[in-house]
Amino acid sequence: MVRFEDVWLKYSTRPGTPGHDVLRGISFEIPDGGFRWLTGPSGAGKTSLLKLIYLAEHPARGFIDILGTRAAHISRREAALLRRRIGVVYQDFRLLPQLSAYDNVALPMRLAHRGETQINADVTEILRWVGLEDRLNARPDELSGGAQQRIAIARAVVARPKLLVADEPTGNLDDEQAQRLMLLITALNRLGTTVIIATHNMALVERYPAPRLRIEAGRMVQNG
């Protein structure tokens, strides 16, 4: 479950200076196994909201519950362990440039101290799913933007997270690849993974109907 109650987020340009509100009084709830589209114009605060979910930001005020854990009251170790249960697809991919496609995808499993046998089976399988089974040893700078995005998606889902957070996951993909990846994500969702996807792609939203969270100027204007 993901639950926000009256959550505010401020960004300040310099430490100690009063920041401006990026999110204002956001409240919503996504049950376990739920699926939500997160929409809104550029600069509305979609990425900031996702950052709060995957614990990359702290709210200025409000209550956040992620997978049954109250985010404001956890130790750094607990936060790290919680992050391992969250798969994140970043808008800018955030792949490690010195690692191969295989090692990038394997990273979350290695962080969780999974055995190499299991890692090899799962990573190979997921790379086959995203159509990159023949580029295992390629480094990110040897891959196209679309291929990098597929690697990022594979990394986010390989450890079968309880919560999948994706920021424009199909932005660099052609329609066929986007369809294929949405099949993967909806399959994960059917297996119990809670999914929240921020997107501008309204055609995709129409093709996969699900409740929407819409944000405009830092405020939630649609929930459901």
Binding site: R76, R77, L81, R83, R94, L95, P97, L111, R155
Partner: peptide, 16 residues
């Protein structure tokens, strides 16, 4: 910095 930030975001412990 970028690498560590990514690995931290993926759930690496400070101790690791």
């Amino acid at each position: 910095r970028d690498t560590i930030t990514i690995v931290h975001g993926l759930g690496a412990l400070d101790g690791d």
